[in-house]
Simulated assay, not measured.
Amino acid sequence: MILTDTHTHLYSEAFDEDRAEMMQRAMEAGVERFFIPAIDASYTDAMYKLEQSYPEHIFLMAGLHPTHVKENYLEELAHVEQQLIDRKFYAIGEIGIDLYWDKTFLKEQQNAFRQQIQLAKKYQLPIVIHCRDAFDEVFEILEEEKGENLFGIFHCFTGTKAQAEKAIGYGLKLGIGGVVTFKNGKIDQFLADIDLKHIVLETDAPYLAPTPYRGKRNESAYLLKVAEKLADLYNINVLEIANATTANSKEIFGV
């Protein structure tokens, strides 16, 4: 059984004390493919070091996270494009709009999101979207940019069934993580109505640990808990969930 964690921040400082052991636990749980979203330029070296340590398992993304869009965002976007010129990446992410913490840079977030979608099209890469308290704003830009060359993953999907169907309509798969195991997560109420071909698994480690680890540091080994929950919802076994969602990840990332 091969599980694919399509979104995990394994370079995070949260893993500095036990990264090797954490990776070993993940692989023992069947997680063999790890897709690594970017945050900003300050994490680039740590991402490269992680890839050097696990070259068969780590797949990097390039991008500027919306909560890190500040006055210098154009410099950050220049760094993203320079990376794309220099070497191979598997997606542009994570990108999008986040109005949960701060709305000061909404205009800049919108500009950065739009420009990074256009970079993804230029380099024929998928996008990985971060959206928090900003469904309308994200969908507005997706409507502008929609087309056959727009595809990717709506990371950490926590919206309604209607919003799920809208995201799928833009060529996006739904990234499902620990929230599906929460009692108040709500997406478990309709997820089985969504064809499994539109679903990929993720942890967003070290954040959003699934039940029974909620509130603790998340890690990629816990992806198995997400897969088990989906197996219950879809009334199939975990191996079928692993096979389907890994195939879906290969469709998006091309590897």
Rank of each mutant, 00 (worst) to 15 (best):
Y54S: 03
Y54R: 05
P55Q: 02
H57G: 08
H57C: 13
I58K: 01
I58N: 01
I58T: 01
A62I: 15
G63E: 06
G63A: 09
L64A: 04
L64N: 01
P66Y: 08
P66Q: 10
V69G: 01
V69I: 13
K70G: 08
E71H: 14
N72F: 01
Y73Q: 10
Y73F: 14
L74N: 12
E75W: 05
E76W: 02
A78N: 10
H79F: 11
H79W: 14
H79C: 03
V80L: 14
E81Y: 05
Q82T: 08
Q83V: 07
L84A: 04
L84R: 03
L84E: 01
I85Q: 08
D86S: 13
K88E: 08
K88C: 07
K88Q: 05
Y90G: 06
Y90C: 06
G93D: 07
E94M: 12
E94T: 11
E94S: 11
E94V: 10
I95C: 04
G96P: 06
D98W: 00
D98S: 03
Y100M: 04
Y100F: 15
W101L: 13
W101S: 10
W101I: 06
D102T: 07
T104D: 05
T104M: 01
T104F: 05
T104N: 10
L106S: 07
K107V: 12
K107I: 11
E108F: 02
E108I: 00
E108A: 14
Q109M: 12
Q110M: 14
N111M: 08
N111W: 04
A112W: 09
Q116W: 02
I117S: 11
L119Q: 07
L119W: 06
A120V: 03
A120M: 02
Y123C: 10
L125E: 05
I129K: 12
R132Q: 09
A134F: 00
A134T: 00
A134P: 00
D136A: 06
V138C: 00
V138M: 00
F139C: 02
E140L: 15
E140G: 13
L142I: 11
E144V: 15
K146C: 03
E148S: 09
E148N: 04
F151M: 00
G152K: 04
I153M: 11
F154A: 07
F154R: 03
H155R: 00
C156V: 04
C156D: 12
F157C: 05
T160D: 01
A164C: 13
A164E: 13
K166G: 12
K166R: 14
I168P: 04
I168K: 04
G169W: 10
G169T: 15
Y170G: 07
G171C: 02
G171W: 02
L172T: 06
K173F: 05
L174T: 08
G175I: 10
G175A: 11
G175H: 11
I176L: 12
I176A: 12
G177A: 11
